[in-house]
Design a binder for these strands. Structure first.
Lengths: 209, 209
DNA sequence: AATCATAAACTGGTCTGACCACTTTGGGAG
DNA sequence: CTCCCAAAGTGGTCAGACCAGTTTATGATT
């Protein structure tokens, strides 16, 4: 093995794997080469490949199906992060940081949307509004995620997804009746471009959780 | 092996490892049982133990020293952001996103500092002000980083450091003469707690870069 | 020809045993 | 008591072997 000298083999593999994904234009959800193929291609033992893959799996960057193959993770929920969280979030301070940082992203997104005539006019806001009116179940996370997505910053989306996964706030839960009014206020404010009002409603909403 | 295929073995090991750490009261920096010992104690193969350990290492939750042992990492410096970042930031298109997201963190920090009487009153602001007055060289990055640090969000700091590293804006450069006035305005506004004014000056400053 | 059941091939999951390289430790020489 | 070195301990990597699922190819039946 000539990978020896410098540093951590499995990190090298992670890096090379990233290159392969780029070269072969593998999209989220697609199958990536099998462990044995990777082992052959990268000229390392299969166990080393597996160590790298397991790391990525813990991060939710890939998914494995026994007997089926390994797939590039679709950018969606990884409950595995909870494990990590239980390690990291020992200190209450970290929890607070996650919380604050997540809200920062959300506020920024709301402001951006409110300031953009095109985004404000999207039918999705009416859709949310009506579904709340009808008493339909809506996950908090869905609304917030939509805001982040529409704000158009893909990097922020990725970061936010991570933060949301770590969040102790019940983002995954359904919108409760007492939140409805605030949320509707927020949605209307967004539609009308009232930035300050939208943020105010958002902040009140978050206080409820 | 009685570890059913119900759930990922390596996750079970991560969990059990956490228990061991708790039971034996292993503190950050302490050595954890060797791979062979864990393999024996948990009744699983050494390779499985390694897969679990590598996952935790990628996250920076543990550190390994070849020939020396494996140690519980200090809880604050997990690398989640870095790793995810390295996967995300390979797309060149996202440079604009990096820019926007970085500025979001900076604005948030400035607002927080301006709103906090203790932070506002810190002598560092006067120090920066005077050094500008005297025409001393100051790196833009130093000032911004100080803001992020003082805002007290360690997670945000981790994220920001990554963003700054990937930023195309010449953050590493020295403050130019024409930036001086704006920066001084910003510093004064921070000291006086004029949030809006501080942000305004910041935004004008960024436009220059 | 189309359908479906079955076998073969493939893929991930795990264990064992073997080396290597490096670090720590313990004991003996001085 | 100190210093040095061999032995033990530990992580790093690999090869091979099975097992357990999934997918694909095959071939017989209808």
């Amino acid at each position: 093995m000539e990978q020896k000298s410098v540093k951590k083999m499995f990190l090298q593999i992670v890096k090379q794997l990233r290159d392969i994904i780029a070269e072969e234009n593998i999209q989220p959800g697609d199958k990536i080469p099998s462990e044995r193929v990777l082992s052959e291609k990268l000229q390392v033992g299969r166990s080393s490949v597996r160590e790298a893959l397991r790391s990525l799996e813990l991060l939710g960057l890939i998914e494995t199906k026994h007997g089926g193959g390994t797939f590039l993770g679709s950018v969606q929920r990884h409950q595995l992060v909870e494990i990590v969280g239980s390690f990291i979030l020992q200190e209450p301070k970290s929890t607070a940081d996650v919380h604050v940082t997540r809200e920062m992203h959300e506020k920024e997104a709301i402001q951006r949307i409110s300031a953009d005539p095109h985004l404000r006019a999207l039918p999705i806001w009416d859709s949310f509004f009506e579904r709340l009116e009808l008493g339909e179940d809506i996950e908090r996370e869905v609304i917030l995620q939509e805001c982040i997505i529409l704000s158009g910053n893909r990097l922020a989306l990725k970061i936010w997804l991570q933060l949301a996964a770590y969040s102790t706030v019940p983002l995954g839960g359904m919108v409760a009746p007492q939140e409805k009014k605030l949320l509707q206020t927020m949605l209307k404010a967004i539609q009308l471009g009232y930035r300050a009002e939208a943020i105010e409603a958002y902040e009140k909403w978050m206080k409820l959780l």
